[in-house]
Write a protein that binds this DNA or RNA. Structure first.
Lengths: 204, 204, 204, 204
DNA sequence: ACCTGCGGGACCGCCCGTTCGT
DNA sequence: ACGAACGGGCGGTCCCGCAGGT
């Protein structure tokens, strides 16, 4: 069992992950963290050297959750189209509650770290890695599908990855902005059609 | 001809629009604005009541540029598929240089204003209106296409709008984050195929 | 006439010089400076980038005052022994009110900067230069005295400088610590005897 | 033999004495003490009520070492001039390594406590007492010398004490600041001459 | 029973957004 | 259009007490 301090530390990471994922780095103040964790500044400082480190770990934590989620699907035991569809559903948070409030943590972290703030350099690396994992995962599933004779060999795996990820991430934001989940559904329906269309015509 | 003060004011709006669109509201300080405009604090406060108002006008200005761009296409004199494709190309900033650095101003403004910061309420309204215009424009083109017999009547205009906008906005971010414009091209190619597929099979 | 801001800035330097000279760098807080200047934090920040810069200028100012005082004596038009005696009287602040409260600014600055605090590096340089000027000034007067036939050629100018400065600086502290100016008088009397003893015996 | 806790406590005092003597009270943090002693916060608080008490005992310890050193000389069995010279040599740390790094603890404690910080009241008392002992010791040796017929009866013991102590303390600082021990030697040479000059001319 | 480890609270220096006189 | 000054809030760090694990 983890020590009490370890639990407190973890709690701080989780709670601030939501804050950072929702309001961004400069939009989240230490006071906000104090309020949402119930831990005072001195207590927080015990575990972290500063806001920067909290943000780094919080973003890393959120990204990691997302990456695990996707990875589980990629290595699951179904055909390629189903796996790609499930990835889309998951990215869109359609079946299950979101892993974290505030939208896709990979995209958010990347946006946040893209402003050139030097204190978010490690976050940027983390986000880049997460995004690479995401894109690479899609690509890998497509490649396996082609090799397994399920998908048409003319398909460009990079293209599928770009389309799938772009569309889902775009829809997440659109849905969030307009407070309208219909965007998710419509986009998922489109993607499902698109993915099915990648199948080799059955010769049987 | 605008007075000198009018021109100064306009210059402040334009310059800060780039800053806000790139670094966000809380990521942009008055000092940054001073630096990028060459106008001192007192001068800025001559024209604006505060950072909030500058941001409001700057975002409005950027959104307006984007909206005009799209509107011009919507009312242009070509068939629906071509207009939709051109909208996609434009959203993706593929042919022309971006209207403003830092990505799509409508999406950025919306993201920025979505955090619940009360001082960005007007920005939020502006962004929502811009996004509605964008989605509505796509929908209108689709509807016209259906009515004109160009597009299949089974098409859901809302669906096309969601897909087109989501995909483009998602790709913009992906491209920006990975510093890789290939995402734009791949997504455009996908959208072009998709849009062509909306056509009624030609009976002739 | 200096601008209003220039005067304010100078006032801040002078007032904080007293504080720093009395309480030291870490013993002086911005609140103290605010209190003693009547200028608020924002107003101070207008002129200085932080406590460090205030301290640098304040110490430099205080050192400079001391150095000027001594330099005036060195270049005055009297014999060597009188000049050396006057330097002693001045260092000891016997005739005139001290140029600044809190003791000799050169010694204080040097002590302060000697702890290895990196933010006081420039202060250290300034203090070193001031001390060098002081010692060098004494040496120069002695050398002139020897060359002019007033002082015995056997005298080591470096020795006189070390003795005069050490004794005065030590006495200042002793007097301050024990709140007893008798130390100054006794030491001055000793130094006066010592300096007279440096004269070449008159052959006439 | 002291108990283990007693030894730990003593070790803390000694180690922090060096820190306080070098960096001063506000320049020494509990973290520094923890680092230099290897004892954790809880361990330190077992023996001391806080930084204030540590400082008090540390300064007292350092002062006491100095005072003992001087007292041993005062009560030694030689003539007055030799004892006074030895006091000077000792104050200047010329023959032996310093009792503690960072300069004369009596002077340092006095300087430190002179800023009016209320938490250093006891340190101030200790320093004042140490300085009084030092001055009184010199005075006593002089008085004994006069009474014993070694020194001229015209001599003012207070004057000698002021001169000797001021000069030595001043030289310590000068040497430390300029990283130049020549000041010590020159000043010692001067003092030796001065002290010899206090002798009654030998009638024999 | 100890004392480490957890957490509290205060304050510091910094910087920002703002107002006002000129 | 500028320069001067304000005041609040941020992030950071310190010194310290108290409760809970060994």
């Amino acid at each position: 069992m983890p020590t009490k301090g370890e639990r407190t530390r973890q709690m701080i990471v989780q709670r601030s992950a939501e804050l950072f994922n929702t309001y961004g780095y400069s939009g989240t103040s230490l006071s906000d963290i104090i309020e949402h964790t119930g831990i005072q500044k001195g207590g927080i400082y015990r575990y972290f050297n500063g806001k920067e480190q909290i943000a780094a770990e919080a973003f890393a934590y959120a990204i990691d959750m997302r990456v695990r989620q996707i990875r589980d699907i990629i290595y699951s035991d179904t055909d390629a189209v189903e796996r790609l569809t499930t990835i889309s559903r998951t990215l869109l948070d359609i079946d299950t509650p979101p892993v974290i409030t505030g939208g896709c943590p990979i995209m958010n972290a990347a946006i946040e770290a893209d402003d050139g703030l030097p204190e978010l350099a490690s976050v940027r690396a983390e986000a880049e890695h997460g995004m690479t994992t995401l894109l690479g995962g899609v690509r890998r599933v497509v490649t396996q599908g082609i090799e397994g004779g399920e998908l048409s060999p003319n398909i460009d795996p990079d293209g599928v990855a770009s389309v799938l990820v772009s569309t889902c991430e775009g829809a997440i934001m659109l849905a969030k902005l307009q407070h309208n989940n219909a965007h998710r559904e419509r986009v998922l329906s489109h993607l499902a059609d698109y993915l099915v269309g990648l199948r080799l015509p059955d010769r049987s």
